[in-house]
């Protein structure tokens, strides 16, 4: 397997995109985008930008775009299990107030 050598141009473009997205996310944080008590719109914006940046790093800097299916599966598994951990934990935390019961959140 000869390694795929990524051109300098692509690396520079990715760098530029990452810097631009950083500027964007900082700028967005100065505006209240709404979304209730937890400011969901702000959170969603910031996390979307973060996911985009991470994806760029994984695909280009870490060469996953040019790697075998197996690497894709490994990366996908890591992300999936992280989401399981966060998601199922939140399934408890976010629904705890639905029934009136004494808990640390309701005090």
């Amino acid at each position: 397997m000869t390694p795929h050598i990524v051109s300098t141009k692509i690396y520079v473009l990715v760098l530029a995109a990452l810097l631009a997205l950083t500027a964007l996310t900082v700028a967005a944080s100065f505006y209240d985008l709404g979304g209730g008590r937890l400011h969901y719109a702000n959170a969603v914006t910031a996390l979307t930008i973060a996911v985009s940046k991470a994806t760029l790093v994984v695909l280009y800097f870490m060469h996953v775009r040019y790697s075998s299916h197996l690497t894709w599966v490994f990366v996908g598994a890591g992300v999936f299990w992280l989401l399981v951990l966060i998601g199922l934990t939140l399934s408890d935390v976010l629904t705890r107030g639905w029934l009136p019961s004494p808990g640390p959140w309701s005090s």
């Binding site: 399934s91 408890d92 935390v93 705890r96």
Partner: peptide, 20 residues
């Protein structure tokens, strides 16, 4: 990996999470 909450049915975990 999807079932761990069954150790916590009476821990104070939300009933809805318990159901799931």
């Amino acid at each position: 990996f999807f079932v761990w909450g069954h150790h916590m049915f009476v821990s104070g975990q939300s009933v809805y999470a318990g159901l799931v």
